[in-house]
Design a protein around this nucleic acid. Structure first.
Lengths: 243, 243
DNA sequence: AAAAATTTATTTGTCTGACATTTAAAAGTC
DNA sequence: GACTTTTAAATGTCAGACAAATAAATTTTT
């Protein structure tokens, strides 16, 4: 963690990379304090603003946190699952919205991953998670619910399903897949009729999870995927020839 | 995209968030040029260094790219799958290394996700992807191979399997799960005997994929997961009582 | 002596102003 | 018209300063 040749890229990017490497390699450990900005400036032979730009890059990735005052400074941050969730969701959302990923492709990925959680969830889901699902199903059945609120509740339901697997790594990985789909789902205007069908399948899933019946959960998820894709297909058709 | 009250946090973080929101919401579109740093400084009523810190935060997340010169500036970046991969891998790796995630938990998540890809891959894998898998199996059988090289080849093999599903969203999601496991896998010193078994299972997977036999692929993945977890368990045992 | 108030030192956050470097377009030259 | 030179605009970097927060050290008060 020292070199900065006069090569091509920004100094602040190079410095950020050097520190990032030190963190990833374990050379810098969690909660360890980095040298002060002035000291870093001396070490890397650059000015303080340049060091600061480097530190802000790292802060944006939640790799460090900073604290003001006498005993303050920049500290290596323990990347929490919560932080990782948010980053993952932002990244996934942008990836989908900027790359003309078809609804079918995104949908296929999402349900493939979710079905991977289903057997574990059938085995381990807690009473609390079941209660969350029931509550969301109840909310989804309210007549006055906006499309946005319905979709948000849908996300919460599936989130509970995934968390039921009791594996934080899985929950983290799925966060992106499930949440990033919401903007795409919002584009489908749900009729009362289609909501009914979705609620029916959600109930089937909740029932099967309660009975620890992995096969029925899987079947219901397949049904839900098929139904969702058909809905999206119909909406696309209707837009093509609105007559 | 305008407000910055004198509230709590850093100005540069607030400005970065304001611009980030504008990008996520679609207010700023791909390849659109942001105002120059001086103009942003005027708009937000802060100095240029503060604006620059905000821009570096966004650059660290690949949300913008900057270009020098007369027609230069900061542009909204199209987040590529490649960029998303790298970020995902860095984040996942740190998440696992910093949070005392057990090998079992990570392994369970990884194979659950990989098994989700298997049916699609059995259906769609290309000849090219099959060839990659065969080549990696061949490499894994070389006697002089270091543990690191063996693990890297292992990653490449599974990467080809995942890519076989022909769904870029799945590949992106899996990148983190598969690659982030490598440091953990490296900690298991493979004996010649265990390599043999892994290569046997890899061959079984490749054969089944070639025959488009999804069930056998799944069975082999389950075998591989079981075997890997037992290996890790044994290593842990041996470390506890090295006598 | 203990507690409270004050001072002090350190560190990050922010500002001002300047210069260097890169780049594309405009102006000039042959 | 093709080539070269100039120019303007933008980011990259630097230096030095002050503000604000914070904890430790010091002083004062009780």
């Amino acid at each position: 963690m020292k070199i900065d040749p006069q090569k091509s890229t920004d100094l602040s990017a190079q410095i950020a990379q050097a520190i990032r490497d030190a963190i990833v390699s374990g050379e810098l450990i969690v909660d360890e304090r980095l040298p002060s900005e002035s000291e870093l400036a001396d070490q890397f032979q650059v000015s303080r603003p340049t060091v600061r730009e480097a530190l802000k890059r790292l802060a944006a990735q939640s790799l460090i946190r900073t604290q003001r005052g006498a005993t303050g400074g920049a500290f290596v941050n323990r990347l929490s699952f919560q932080d990782a969730y948010s980053q993952q969701i932002t990244t996934s959302t942008l990836l989908l919205s900027m790359n003309e990923v078809s609804f079918d492709t995104a949908c296929e990925a999402r349900y493939a991953l979710e079905r991977a959680c289903a057997p574990l969830s059938a085995q381990r889901r807690t009473a609390d998670q079941l209660a969350t699902m029931r509550a969301e199903i109840f909310r989804q059945a309210q007549p006055g619910l906006t499309d946005e609120a319905f979709c948000a509740s849908d996300v919460a339901f599936h989130r509970a399903l995934v968390d039921g697997a009791g594996n934080p790594v899985l929950s983290y990985q799925l966060a992106g897949a499930v949440e990033a789909m919401q903007p795409l789902m919002n584009m489908i205007t749900f009729t009362a009729r289609s909501r009914e069908e979705i609620i029916r399948l959600h109930s089937k899933i909740a029932d099967a999870l309660e009975a620890q019946d992995a096969e029925t959960v899987d079947a219901a998820l397949v049904e839900l995927e098929t139904y969702t894709r058909r809905l999206a297909h119909d909406v696309a058709e209707r837009r093509r020839k609105p007559a």
